[in-house]
Amino acid sequence: MAAPSSSSSSSPVLSLWKAYHQNTSDRLKFIDSFLIFLMISGIIQFVYCVLVTNFPFNAFLAGFSSTVGQFVLTASLRSQVNPENKGVFKDVSPERAFSDFVLGSIVLHFFVFNFLG
């Protein structure tokens, strides 16, 4: 949890970026890249909805909630497998976390598929 020593003069955003690079394992970075992809995908859909049309509103909702839902499920997986959180998740091993993640995603996309219409 302790923040790494970084020059306090530099902007917080920059030092956040640096610290993130230093103390995050590659696995988590991999998950994070997926999260960023999902976020960009969601933003594009939202912008499309606002600027162009929301006409098949159910389709927009399905697509958008699929990205949001997948995002939070992946974020959940990330926090569950994060070694820093081991004390918080006593009952959830990384394997269990992954199976939960898979199950949640299947249920989510079942509803997404149903809602696409």
Binding site: F57, A75, S76, S79, Q80, L108, F111, N114
Partner: peptide, 27 residues
């Protein structure tokens, strides 16, 4: 805690989408 995050977000994301499947509830 992260547990709260996991529990709430997985409930809300899936639950809200699924609740919209009921025609009477709709959007």
């Amino acid at each position: 805690s992260s547990r709260l995050y996991v529990a709430y977000c997985s409930w809300y994301a899936i639950g809200t989408l699924s609740s919209m499947q009921v025609p009477f509830v709709g959007f």
